[in-house]
């Protein structure tokens, strides 16, 4: 009876262990691994190791939750909505896995296993406690020091904000290809702002308050010089592709000197979207990004990210 339960649990544990590398959703993969540990814990319960068994569940549940969170942080596609394969040296790995299983299994089957079960009625938890405080005291305290080292290492390696400010202050991440643009998050100002500007260039000050000063200034100058050239800012490509600096610089007309006041007027009724539509209807219509809400949301989202 116990053996049957153990077989079922073992099959469940192996199956969930296998599912870890087969499911698309990374969160499911982490929790499949947790189920595999729970199967181990169940076998422990059956094998008169109540403490180790239940504590395994407790420890592994926590660890797998952290694992799932890191999955979401680091996987391109954490939910596996579009399947992709992220494996290398696949045949070699399968071979290694099979050889390991076959070797260990053969060793198990061929060797003469000892047979002396735990005496029923032993208080195994108290035994472990006495072992910890008595003969294995040094192991216990060494584990403490090791865990301390782990905590320090984890903080040093992963913490972004230290006592002296951001760990990566002023640094730019390397490009995705040699000499390319910095990848991902940019330290100070970057693509995100350009994006936001494209939106509010046309739509009043949805994001002006958050924009960095020089950017805002250039855009204002740029917006103020008349109808037609202003359009570059309206088309989504122009907004996203052309970054502020040169763009603004080329159009820096006399308005630059008084851009504060000029900006207000330029953004007044003359630049309202309806008016724009009259002047340049197709372009405005073709721009899906021209929805003020969408831009506002994106702008704020990015700012939230950077702070």
């Amino acid at each position: 009876m116990t053996d049957l339960a153990i077989i079922l649990l073992a099959l469940f544990g192996v199956w969930t262990g296998w599912r870890v590398f087969r499911v698309d959703s990374m969160v499911r993969a982490s929790f499949a691994l947790m189920l595999s540990f729970i199967a181990t814990a169940g076998i422990g319960l059956l094998l008169s190791a109540p403490y180790i068994g239940v504590a395994t569940v407790f420890m592994m549940a926590v660890e797998m939750l952290v694992m799932a969170i890191f999955m979401v942080m680091f996987m391109m596609n954490p939910a596996g909505l579009n399947p992709m394969s992220m494996v290398h040296q696949h045949r070699l790995s399968i071979g290694a896995g099979v050889v390991a299983f076959a070797g260990l299994g053969a060793a198990v089957l061929l060797s003469d296993l000892p047979d002396s079960p735990v005496a029923p009625g032993t208080d195994v938890v108290a035994q472990l406690g006495f072992e910890l405080l008595g003969p294995s005291m040094l192991i216990f305290e060494t584990a403490g020091v090791t865990l301390l080292a782990t905590m320090l290492g984890a903080v040093i390696l992963s913490s972004r904000q230290g006592r002296f400010g951001m760990a990566d202050h002023g640094s730019r991440p390397p490009g995705l290809e040699p000499g390319g643009a910095p990848a991902g998050r940019r330290p100070e100002k970057g693509g995100g702002h350009g994006h936001g500007h494209g939106g509010h260039g046309g739509h009043g000050d949805g994001g002006h308050g958050r924009a960095s000063d020089d950017h805002g200034g250039e855009h204002r100058g740029h917006m103020s010089d008349g109808d037609h050239e202003g359009h570059a800012g309206y088309s989504p490509d122009g907004a996203m592709g052309a970054p502020g600096p040169e763009h603004g610089a080329t159009h820096r007309t006399p308005a630059k000197s008084e851009h504060g006041g000029e900006h207000r007027t330029a953004h007044g009724p003359g630049h309202a979207p309806q008016d724009q539509k009259a002047a340049d209807a197709p372009q405005e219509d073709a721009a899906p990004n021209a929805d003020p809400h969408a831009h506002h949301r994106k702008g704020t989202g990015h700012d939230g990210d950077d702070t």
Binding site: V27, P50, Y51, V54, A55, A61, M64, L65
Partner: peptide, 28 residues
């Protein structure tokens, strides 16, 4: 009659946190 009742409760706590996480994860 678990000899490790409070550890069982601790495991339930940890798994409850996971359950709530999954509940928030699942609707996408």
């Amino acid at each position: 009659h678990s000899p490790v009742g409070i550890v069982v409760w601790g495991s339930c706590e940890a798994l409850i946190v996971i359950t709530v996480f999954l509940h928030g994860w699942s609707p996408n």
